[in-house]
Design a binder for these strands. Structure first.
Length: 486
RNA sequence: CGGGGCGUGGCGCAGUCCGGUAGCGCACCUGCUUUGGGAGCAGGGGGUCCCCGGUUCGAAUCCGGGCGCCCCGACCA
């Protein structure tokens, strides 16, 4: 292939490295439309595996999938005040169709709260109709000024859950249930352990009462908002007349939640595990978990091919996603580089020597410290061990990411100068006290480009609760985690 | 919207300052030899030099105008 150059190193230019990895591992490519990308089979395969895992978890917790239209009447979006203020600048609007100017313009959905709750209003009459627990897998469009592959594109794929409940407590519970699902998914599938918590007023979703979030730390120590779960209160219910009759016969507005994760998670995966050789895909997400490269020599290739087919079949029977790379126009070495760049967790090499000795060469995408890159194992053993090796590889990735997050977290910072010092020293998350004043956020954002990523949930908070605000003004009402963010 | 960079076979680039009729590497096609970390040799195909206009005997190159994309910042999942 044409692609035989080394990647930019992460420590040289992280942004350049990221772009090269995405393009050269064939996750995605730039499209003819500015700011939007084509997700190629390797990237889409990873997304499909993400979808499957999440979808299972949503369904296990009682949610159903549905589909709502791409186009939303402009007046719907305008109904909720904060919502329109938040989204107006980035809307793409359809003003013409069928050769005529439309009476009312349609907005290409930037998110679907408005159209979905307008429909729920039609379907809900009684408390017996609640809760409504729906999710949709869809594309949305937000016309961002500056885009980045997977992290911020004009159009992206996501899931958006929208629920309606009879009580605020139940809706709040739902919001936290989903936050927990997101966290578990990020930890156990992506191996990207986030901190979770509440957004500050200035960072919350436009139209929400409260936004909860997952914030993950990338290798450049910038935080990535990886998922959000919003408690919407009755804001949308009131605007869309989503009412129900209670058991006592009274009329009441429903309580809503909405929550989403997007193809941004693919970008998070890249920046969490990728290295200077390219992508590293966690086994549970890898479209190909084991690639087999036959070493063909001379004309006696028949028995070798049979052996490769047999090994592949046995791995497949053991539940391993396996691919045979039998291309004849590439040397084995070229294939090694290609699959390593694409992040396939394990590679088996089977050649004439192995055929005789009954062994195979197993190469790991990440070689443990002090070990050789390739292991020569008896064929049967290699096959038998691979499922467990995949699982432990998955776990190692998570633990490494967790260790990195903790190693780059600074706690107990008590002044703005010390906060600045922490970021100058390359910190990721920095925990401080906060008096709840948005002006403090503004000042710090201005000065060091860091924002409050979350008011962390209990298990992420420091052992010692800060009592004063980082600004020096007043006492702290909540511990907060600051970071520079994507 | 500000700052920077770039538009030349599929990809990456040289050539532009100093005008002379387009070149290199990779990829691709054919053949032979190869294949355990990016194969070698030989032959071959492929280009409106982003667009429009101007200067000139002659423009990838000079002049004027336009368009597009990428990167960095302000805005955001």
């Amino acid at each position: 292939m044409a692609d035989d150059k080394k990647l930019t190193r992460r420590d040289e230019d992280f942004a350049a490295w990221y772009n090269e990895v995405v393009l050269r591992s064939e996750l995605a490519d730039y499209s003819p439309v500015k700011g939007s990308m084509v997700i190629r089979p390797w990237g889409y395969g990873i997304w499909e595996n993400m979808q499957r895992a999440l979808d299972d978890m949503f369904k296990e917790t009682g949610h159903e999938n549905a589909y709502f239209p791409l186009l939303i009447p402009m007046s719907f979006i305008e109904r909720e005040k904060e919502h329109i203020e938040g989204f107006a600048p980035e809307l793409a609007v359809v003003t013409q169709a069928g050769g005529k100017v439309l009476e009312e313009p349609y907005v290409i959905r930037p998110t679907s709260e408005t159209i979905i709750y307008s429909m729920y209003a039609k379907w809900v009459q009684s408390y017996r109709d609640l809760p409504v627990l729906m999710n949709q897998w869809a594309n949305v469009v937000r016309w961002e000024m500056r885009t980045r592959l997977f992290l911020r594109t004009s159009e992206f794929l996501w899931q958006e859950g929208h629920t309606a409940h009879a009580t605020a407590e139940e809706a709040e519970e739902e919001t936290l249930l989903i936050l927990g699902i997101y966290r578990k998914f990020m930890e156990d599938w992506i191996g990207m352990p986030p901190i979770t918590g509440l957004k500050s007023e200035s960072e919350k979703f436009a139209g929400a009462v409260r936004s909860y979030c997952c914030e993950a730390l990338m290798q450049d120590n910038k935080a990535l908002q990886a998922g959000t779960s919003h408690f919407l209160g009755q804001n949308f219910a009131k605007q869309f007349d989503l009412k129900f009759q209670t058991e006592a016969g009274e009329e009441e507005y429903a309580w809503n939640t909405s929550w989403g994760v997007s193809t941004r998670l693919v970008g998070g995966m890249v920046m969490t595990h990728g290295d200077d050789d390219g992508l590293v895909v966690p086994p549970r997400l890898a479209p190909v978990q084991v690639v087999i490269v036959p070493i063909l020599r001379g004309d006696e290739t028949g028995p070798l091919r049979d052996k490769v087919d047999e090994v592949a079949a046995r791995l497949k029977a053991a539940g391993v996603r396996v691919k045979i790379d039998a291309r004849e126009n590439l040397s084995p070495g070229a294939k090694y580089y290609e699959w390593e760049r694409k992040g396939v967790p394990f590679r088996l090499e089977i050649g004439p020597r192995d055929l005789e000795s009954g062994q195979v060469a197993l190469a790991r995408r990440l070689t443990p410290e002090g070990e050789k890159r390739k292991l020569f194992l008896p064929e049967g053993q290699a096959i038998a061990e691979l499922p467990a090796r995949l699982e432990s590889f998955q776990t190692e990735l998570k633990l490494a990411a967790l260790a990195r997050r903790e190693a780059n977290t600074v706690r107990g910072v008590k002044s703005v100068d010390a906060l600045q010092e922490a970021f100058d020293g390359g910190a990721g998350f920095v925990y401080t006290g906060w008096n709840g004043d948005a002006a403090v956020e503004e000042t710090i954002k201005e000065r060091m480009k860091a924002t409050i990523r979350a008011l962390p949930g209990e298990e992420f908070r420091s052992g010692e609760t800060p009592d004063t605000c980082v600004s020096g003004n007043g006492s702290s009402v909540a511990e907060v985690a600051w970071a520079r963010a994507y």
